[in-house]
Simulated assay, not measured.
Amino acid sequence: MIALLIIDMQNAYFEAPELAAKQERLVASCNRLLEGFTSNGHKALLVGTEHERDKSTWTLNMLDDDQGFIFRGSEQAEAVPGLATAGLPQLTKTRDSAFMGTNLLSRLRNWNADEVVLAGVSTHNCIAQTGADAFAHNIRVTYAQDAMASEDSGDAADMLRILSSTYRQPVESNDEILARLSGGQNGTAGGRT
């Protein structure tokens, strides 16, 4: 089973001009993947970041700067307009990795998912950290090239190069990913290099 993780497609992240310019394309690409996964019997999970105002969930840089971000229940924490979230299970995180301090691993095991496709933002931190932690849990990763973006394209390219070569985590287009879902491979990563 392959599971799709849509990561941090929230209003707060698209306040960055570099991501705001890509928002419409990203929403359309994520929605295309969501449709492909659900129509082929695969699971999808909406992963988002939320913090408490009392600083109990803040990261070191937030504490150092004494500035919070994406507070629970705020407009910043809401999914970006147009993202097809209806009926999707959700997971809330407070760190870059979707595995850190969450029940993501249990959910993937319950789904019998041995591979995740990662989409959303930002490639060089939350997506990359989730991918590295998936590797540590022996879960295969594919990065959805058309459905992810970063504020820093140089850092994103560097991270993907490292993850692809060191952890053998491929970067594929939506077409390649969706072809594998419906291509008679029973939802496995069989035949991948």
Rank of each mutant, 00 (worst) to 15 (best):
A3I: 09
I6N: 09
I7H: 03
M9W: 02
N11I: 03
N11M: 01
A12Q: 15
A12D: 15
Y13P: 01
F14S: 09
A21I: 02
Q23A: 12
S29D: 15
L33T: 04
L34D: 03
E35V: 10
G36R: 01
N40G: 08
G41C: 08
K43S: 15
A44G: 02
L46I: 05
T49Q: 14
R53E: 15
K55A: 13
T57C: 08
T57L: 13
L63H: 07
F69W: 12
R72Y: 09
S74V: 11
Q76M: 06
Q76P: 01
A77P: 06
E78G: 08
V80Y: 02
P81C: 03
G82K: 04
A84C: 03
S97T: 08
M100V: 08
T102S: 07
N103C: 12
N110D: 15
N112V: 04
N112Q: 15
E115V: 11
E115M: 14
E115I: 11
V116M: 00
V121N: 05
T123V: 01
N125S: 14
I127E: 07
A136K: 11
H137Q: 12
Q145C: 10
D155P: 00
A157W: 07
M159Y: 04
M159Q: 12
L160I: 13
Q169H: 13
E172G: 00
D175C: 01
I177R: 08
A179F: 09
A179C: 09
S182N: 11
G183S: 06
G187D: 10
T188V: 09
R192E: 09
